[in-house]
Design a protein around this nucleic acid. Structure first.
Lengths: 98, 98
DNA sequence: AAAAGCACTTTGCAATACAAAGCTAAATTA
DNA sequence: TAATTTAGCTTTGTATTGCAAAGTGCTTTT
């Protein structure tokens, strides 16, 4: 009945939605690429990434390219599951709407 | 490129999303039915309805059933257009994701 | 006359969102 | 080698939002 009952609260934010969407397609994305794709300030992005990590939806890899630091982000199994659930809920809502 | 570039900020809220979704299907819905369908408190619902009205996405009809007041809400043409645009943006994001 | 319902508004607090600035270490440029 | 730039943050501060709870006025039901 309730068309919004199964939406995931974490994914209400457009930026977190965008991060998840990008990470579903590209299995490892670094900070700067995410920043450019989503057109957000770095501080803002960092805090949303933090929220996603705290919820276990993404994981962070701090590595190097040569001797230069490189941080990449990837979706976790839990994150994939949660995001897919959210998309299904959205699709149901859209279907309900038509 | 940016998968979230065309999402409508007004529809980031699950409750406003729900209101629009319900009003796309049912052309006139009263306050109480909305409240029950979306499972929200009345004050919360009222404020979201207010935001939607201020943005010209819904209109309010204050009428009577017999001598009892009855307020119904309906989507406007602009609201329908904006919501459809948002759904298309969501669908693109979902397609991008798969 | 009292209680309850409808459709709000007001109040107040807590949680977000966000930009901007600061920060560290490494890399690049001059 | 000194100065600047880049990556990836954290901190700070402000403004906005979300929400529940309580209050309001009118009406209907009991």
């Amino acid at each position: 009945m309730n068309p919004i009952g199964n939406l995931n609260k974490i994914f209400e934010s457009r930026i977190r939605l965008g991060v998840m969407s990008v990470l579903m397609v590209n299995n490892e994305v670094n900070f700067n690429d995410l920043k450019q794709m989503l057109e957000v300030t770095d501080g803002n992005l960092a805090s949303h990434l933090n929220t996603l990590e705290e919820n276990g939806y993404i994981k962070v890899y701090k590595g190097f390219i040569g001797r230069k630091t490189n941080t990449t982000y990837a979706i976790t199994t839990a994150g994939e599951k949660a995001f897919k659930g959210h998309l299904i809920a959205l699709e149901h809502m859209i279907k309900f709407t038509k």
